[in-house]
Design a protein around this nucleic acid. Structure first.
Lengths: 128, 128
DNA sequence: TGACATCTACGAAATCGTTCGTATAACTAT
DNA sequence: ATAGTTATACGAACGATTTCGTAGATGTCA
């Protein structure tokens, strides 16, 4: 197992991955305490066990309280989910998604500058 | 029913919505023929009936073969799904998602120009 | 009219995601 | 050692999604 493409994480799984991405390796107890949703301890445990089977996380069993880590970095999963959404609802055009995302406003000048920079490098590539 | 916020469409539902967005109002048979996946006729029918209950589509029952239409335009659903993804995996920052989307390349010069134009108008707003 | 085609409605099965109760193992401290 | 705490494992229930078989209604046509 744990070979090949990983499945798209579910909502509950994503919430757990966010905790692992933000804080690094964590035990079930730590994840459960960080998630301040109403879910019970065994619910989080069960979900993390399933995530282990799916290969979404790895775990270190050398201690009594197993220590879980995200298998892929945040950026890989973001990329996967973006590509997925682009294919399913934006006809395969990442630019369409970007336009839609940016039209929600809430973008800081710093982020706008960063985007402009990326646009520059993309145009340089295609225009070379 | 059919009031308030609509649920996030599932994958099968999205495939059907794409057909309705692309081609306008359609009967179950037409949708089924357009979708060249292996799903059976009654599967598509059942899904579209459920979508009617959820309010994702409306239907005209005046003919024997009911005619279905997407309840929301493509853009509204795209917006909903983008906002959803931004909140769930991009810490609420649409610009982060845009950056991730654009770094997949596959963006035409026309789309780049369009993006640059959007950036211009966004910067003008924030800088006013 | 009768045979055939086409459509909706209904319901049931299979799978998945989420939840948690309970059992059991392992550690802690008296 | 014994009681209490904390961990994993297991399995079951529930709802949602996807699938489709079958029944029954409606239309067509020779």
């Amino acid at each position: 197992m744990s070979r090949g493409k990983l499945p798209r994480p579910t909502d509950a799984e994503l919430a757990i991955l966010r905790v692992l991405w933000d804080g690094g390796a964590r035990t079930v107890r730590e994840v459960h305490e960080t998630l301040q949703d109403g879910s019970g301890y065994t619910t989080v445990l069960k979900t993390m066990q399933i995530m282990t089977e799916k290969g979404l996380v790895t775990r270190d069993e050398s201690q009594r309280a197993h220590v879980y880590s995200a298998r892929l970095p945040r950026e890989s999963t973001q990329q996967q989910l973006v590509t997925d959404l682009v294919d399913r609802v934006f006809g395969g055009s990442p630019a369409r998604l970007a336009l839609q995302a940016l039209s929600t406003k809430k973008t800081s000048p710093e982020e706008l500058a960063e985007l402009r920079q990326l646009l520059d490098s993309l145009e340089k590539e295609s225009g070379s």
